[in-house]
């Protein structure tokens, strides 16, 4: 290789790098709002992987495109290309580099995971470590104790605040405090998923799963069922409200004062409607559970971010 080729190669690599860095920055804008401490960590990880991925993709595709554009056989040229069967040095390089990249990506992912310290379902006790970044406030004070009970069923979400004696179909959480939930399902698998928090956990019937994360931004966000749960799966959604400590306490008090009423429930209502009108173009379905009786209900009309 002469100097010029090396120069050109280095130049191209730098161009590739710059383009990838730029794409990596764009990655943040493809995500929902960052409403939890975890989301900041996940977005950084995603941006990092997007940068690396773009670098590889652009590098390989660039090489291919160059060959496609400039190394075509002339129309009547029936000869073969050079008989190059391989190159040990090159092969060692392109085995080693991916190994190093993999170790790098895995390490960054591991660190992110560690800092999120999402509680695995098989670790019923809080780990109480490495939560510094994810739980910005003092741990002892932050615990929403006792944990909020989350019930998932076909097809409704219900949240139970044992201390205040409140049942709600909208999840309310105080901002900047580690939220602690216990997830359980009464029928099939469901998934607890709040895109703005970047957290997700399957709810497995027959188990109680501890789950925690830290909301850091006030607002109303969408909560979705993420593990396919049958006919009305798509409609099994509700909202999470993150609010200041005072608002949270006010809300609890206000809700506790109300008497229970049946919440709005898309699945239940839709099921009864089809039953009544009997268009009958569908198949027989599992019957939805009746609308939950709660002190506070979310509405499909509510806006969210």
């Amino acid at each position: 290789m002469n100097r010029r080729t090396i120069g050109v190669l280095v130049g191209l690599a730098i161009a590739d790098l710059l383009a990838s860095l730029w794409i990596g920055q764009q990655a943040y804008t493809w995500m929902p709002p960052q409403a939890s401490a975890e989301s900041v960590l996940v977005d950084n990880l995603f941006s990092f992987m997007t940068t690396l991925g773009s670098f590889i993709f652009l590098g390989v595709m660039g090489t291919l495109l160059y060959a496609i554009l400039f190394q075509r056989a002339a129309k009547y040229d029936a000869s073969d290309g050079p008989n190059i069967e391989g190159n040990v040095k090159l092969e060692v390089v392109w085995t080693t580099i991916p190994i190093l990249l993999v170790i790098w990506i895995a390490t960054v992912s591991y660190q992110t995971y560690d800092r999120m310290s999402i509680l695995g379902p098989m670790e019923p006790l809080p780990m109480g470590m490495a939560t510094a970044e994810a739980a910005p406030t003092d741990r002892a004070a932050s615990v929403t104790s006792p944990p909020i009970q989350v019930f998932a069923r076909q097809w409704a979400w219900e949240f139970h605040y044992p201390e205040a004696g409140v049942r709600s179909t909208e999840l309310h959480l105080p901002v900047n405090q580690r939220a602690q939930l216990v997830l359980s399902s009464e029928d099939v698998l469901h998934g607890f998923f709040v895109p703005a928090f970047r957290v997700k956990q399957d709810v497995v019937p027959g188990r109680e799963i501890n789950f925690e994360f830290t909301p850091i931004r006030e607002g109303r966000y969408r909560l979705r069922d993420s593990e396919y749960s049958g006919t009305y799966f798509a409609a099994n959604q509700t909202n999470v409200v993150v609010e200041s400590s005072e608002d949270y306490q006010d809300w609890l008090a206000m809700a506790a004062a109300r008497s229970p009423f049946p919440a709005e429930n898309v699945a239940f209502e839709a099921f009864n409607q089809t039953d009544a009108s009997a268009i009958g173009l569908g198949w027989k379905t599992v019957e939805p559970a009746p609308a939950p009786l709660v002190n506070f209900a979310s509405s499909e009309e509510d806006t969210y971010e």
Partner: peptide, 25 residues
């Protein structure tokens, strides 16, 4: 993630096969 290593070997090998050849599209 480790799977990307043997897979990468293939991808790079194909690129190197194409590189410097007499392509017929």
């Amino acid at each position: 993630m480790a799977i990307s290593v043997p897979t990468g070997i293939k991808v790079f090998a194909w690129v190197a096969t194409i590189w410097g050849g007499k392509l017929r599209l």
